[in-house]
Write a protein that binds this DNA or RNA. Sequence first.
DNA 1: CATGCGCCTGTAGCAATACTGCATGCTTCG
DNA 2: CGAAGCATGCAGTATTGCTACAGGCGCATG
Lengths: 300, 300
Amino acid sequence: MLDVKRLQVLLAIVEEGSVTAAATALGYTPSAVSQQLLRLEREAGQPLLDRHARGMTPTDAGLVLARHARKVVRQLAAAESDLADIAGVRRGSVTLGTFPTVGSSFLPLAVRRYRELYPAIQLTIHSGREDHLVRMLEEGAVALSLLWDYDWQRVDNRDLELTELFTDPTVLLVGATHRLARRRTVRMADLADEPWIIRAGGHPVVEVLERSAVAAGFTPGIAFHANDYQEAQAMVSVGLGIALAPRTATVNQHPDVRVISLGDTAPARRVLVAHRPGRVRAAAELALHDVLVETAASYS
Amino acid sequence: MLDVKRLQVLLAIVEEGSVTAAATALGYTPSAVSQQLLRLEREAGQPLLDRHARGMTPTDAGLVLARHARKVVRQLAAAESDLADIAGVRRGSVTLGTFPTVGSSFLPLAVRRYRELYPAIQLTIHSGREDHLVRMLEEGAVALSLLWDYDWQRVDNRDLELTELFTDPTVLLVGATHRLARRRTVRMADLADEPWIIRAGGHPVVEVLERSAVAAGFTPGIAFHANDYQEAQAMVSVGLGIALAPRTATVNQHPDVRVISLGDTAPARRVLVAHRPGRVRAAAELALHDVLVETAASYS
DNA sequence: CATGCGCCTGTAGCAATACTGCATGCTTCG
DNA sequence: CGAAGCATGCAGTATTGCTACAGGCGCATG
């Protein structure tokens, strides 16, 4: 049986990129890390890392093993978390994961309702990006997490149990002086020649524009790469271009921006609540789950 | 981070039922096992096992932790198996899991075809019960496994990827001198007053009879509990009663037994091939998968 | 082309840890 | 009431894993 400590060492090296970096991250000396690595490679019967002058990169075997190591480590973290739950350390408290747009639109409603119903329960909320949320779920750092997905990239994690809360349509943002500002609805096909403002850094919402533009028969011209939806709205307000956004992102609406429906000419995203199955679910957690579902029912 | 060795100790105690039994299973002295257990309980901050005079039983926390331990151990076994695959130790060989009925009906056809196509590849087959098959899959002891399920109890394992091969209808077995022996098809409702022969030991196929009898509006009378389908056929042949069986179980047909279709008045089972997703799949394995699917297509 | 820097690895010694062997206490069964 | 089966405590030993330090290798820089 492979030694888990050594696997953790491997994981650290893969993630940090070098033995010395891994050593400082783990609080060991490089020598110790190196020794453990060598033993692991001997046990594995094959090299796990390619050495070069500055640091190391994993071989195929190293990558596979690191992936297994990650799962093992998360499983152990989940075990510890479950133990803490059972010991009652966390009785009367829940932790929830969320992401920015929903965190500033739908979630406050649910939180208010939850506090009304269960004022004694301490609710802790972590906001983060999708991968972070999934990791926290798997490690038991949060009991529940809100997630989202689109048709073409469903959350497909076999270690999560999903409940759909509501669908969040994609809407169009235009400046107050834009030619379409007075319209209630618009079709994507009407927007072929407009300059677009999109989220920077390969944010998944970029694909929403690409796909719906393709479906409408045009290639969008990009005028600006925005870092968040507030910035996107600011640019829209001064007429630099128009933008797509999930409706939940338009709660803090800029005064000079108009929100226009796209009907079904742009895809909607699902907002979900996820939890790790097979856990002992505390009453506080089940209650929160219910409040989320219930609030969602009266939300759209 | 919890220590995996200790978790294995806990697992052994839970499965063996006592410290001494676990110790012999692990090749340690009872003292060592006891010490590790105590440390684990101290780390966990709560008792994990209830002591009584003869052995121990797990507490809730102990059960939960043992479940996590099982997953960790399997993950580690899978990691080792993947390493062996990558190292090429198993290149040109595949292992397959199967279960008795299909192992003596459909599988030989697929194996013959596979040997024709790839005579150089060494094929190893393990036959076992469902839980054993799933365990072997998860640990990487077999690369592929045949499995089966019915509508009401689908194989629902998030760590397995399933491909349906064919459906295996439930047929009726009667003795050669039975009043219905000449019939080609029969409905369950016609069999209300017959004595039945079923599989012993809560075999899942018992539920097939119960459910289809209920659907047909009667409660079956049981005349015999058989240990396997050969025995069941023997009893049917002497007229002790009639029996249900998946059609694949009727390949070695007893001379004095007649097989009669039940149409859709009895449920059929799915026969599947499963593999652990996210693995590096060897060419030999993919080829076997293809041959299974292909053979199945021309099977029913 | 030489020097220096960053990194990995090897050796020796020390500290922590896990196991054995044996003894003890508890409970149940004959 | 004694014997058997079980868990556990204690002391000693063997293994393991870490540190400290020294070397060696590859690349960059002057």
